[in-house]
């Protein structure tokens, strides 16, 4: 891995903090899950955090992200409020969608986290459309679209690429390639592994990051976004990564036999959280860890204490301008 030479110690602290917050928040979600207080399917990103963190750290608060049902990492990396996320999972009115959307539909428009969708591929063109509006706005903001390897099989993915490239829209397409769609490996779904080649045919510069190097992802996005702010068109990142837990739910599932625990162990050996953590001195790292534990405990407490939405909330928000 390239050395993080140009990064300041503040950069490293911030990136570590983000990686650690996502990891620990999701581990706690998994711990709480068997209590049935979270009655929402949860798709955890444990092991995949570096992609969201690397991309989002290269964006500003004014830039926009769209994510998927596996969206806790995207939401938190972009600065989404942890309390509001936890409350959303608990179905509480203080949640980021007032308990109406659950884990699969996290949203925080004030942080430019566009709402996530549970229908694979559906948010990709939405990010493109948002970028169309950003281009018109002319302030140099960009949109990043996160999606899985499975989403690249939907026609809408290619249609979106074509349009974004045709109009040179400021979109960072980010494929979180964890090699599986639910339990089905790429080999049973892709005729050719050359995803970047497919995308490049639309005239879009592509980057294939096979080791999840959080600093490399950050640098590529930072460079590309700087150009987009001056009018350059979209880029595409294929980020290899690995989902450590089951597709949906809190557990591991290596005993199911569709993948090998050794693959995960290989990825864990280069865990970006550990790697970045090792760049910090023990005191700094310990201090961040303690802060994060407090934040997570407070978020769970907040979610537990918050009320459920009142019954009349069932009928609010069907149409805008009504309630």
């Amino acid at each position: 891995m390239p050395s993080p030479a140009k990064l300041t110690s503040e950069d490293i602290r911030r990136i570590y903090r983000s990686l650690r917050l996502i990891r620990r928040a999701e581990e706690e979600i998994a711990r709480v899950y068997p209590s049935d207080r979270i009655k929402s399917p949860v798709h955890l990103s444990i092991g995949q955090e570096a992609v969201a963190v690397g991309v989002c750290d290269a964006l500003t608060g004014d830039d926009v992200v769209s994510g998927t049902y596996r969206g806790h990492a995207t939401y938190l990396a972009k600065g989404g409020d942890l309390n509001a996320m936890m409350a959303e999972l608990f179905g509480k009115v203080t949640g980021c969608a007032r308990g109406k959307g659950g884990s699969m539909h996290l949203v925080e428009m004030s942080k430019n986290v566009l709402g996530a969708s549970a229908v694979v591929g559906t948010t990709i063109p939405l990010a493109v459309g948002y970028a169309l509006a950003l281009r018109r706005e002319g302030r140099g903001r960009v949109a990043a679209a996160f999606f899985g390897d499975g989403a690249t099989e939907e026609g809408v993915f290619y249609e979106s690429l074509n349009f974004a490239s045709l109009h040179k829209l400021p979109v960072v397409f980010v494929c979180e390639n964890n090699f599986y769609a639910i339990h089905t490996p790429l080999t049973k779904r892709w005729a050719s592994e050359a995803l970047c080649g497919r995308v490049a045919n639309f005239g879009i510069p592509t980057h294939r990051i096979t080791d999840s190097d959080v600093f490399a992802i950050r640098r590529i996005v930072a460079d590309a976004v700087a150009e987009m702010r001056q009018g350059a068109g979209p880029i595409f990142l294929e980020c290899h990564t690995y989902r450590w837990r089951e597709h949906v739910g809190p557990m591991e599932d290596y005993e199911a036999g569709y993948r090998d625990r050794n693959d995960m162990e290989t990825w864990r050996a280069t865990d970006q959280l550990e790697r970045v953590g090792a760049l910090l001195d023990a005191t700094t790292r310990g201090k961040i860890n303690i802060e994060i534990e407090k934040e997570i405990a407070a978020a769970i407490e907040f979610a537990d204490q918050s009320p459920f939405p009142p019954p009349e909330e069932l009928h609010t928000h069907v149409f805008a301008g009504q309630s």
């Binding site: 009655k39 929402s40 179905g91 509480k92 949640g95 308990g99 109406k100 959307g101 659950g102 699969m104 539909h105 459920f308 939405p309 019954p311 909330e313 069932l314 009928h315 069907v318």
Partner: peptide, 16 residues
């Protein structure tokens, strides 16, 4: 179904 989108929270879902 209630003439709304299906909410996730059990508090509302039960009346949906």
């Amino acid at each position: 179904f209630a003439p709304t989108t299906c909410p996730t929270t059990p508090a509302l879902e039960q009346t949906f």
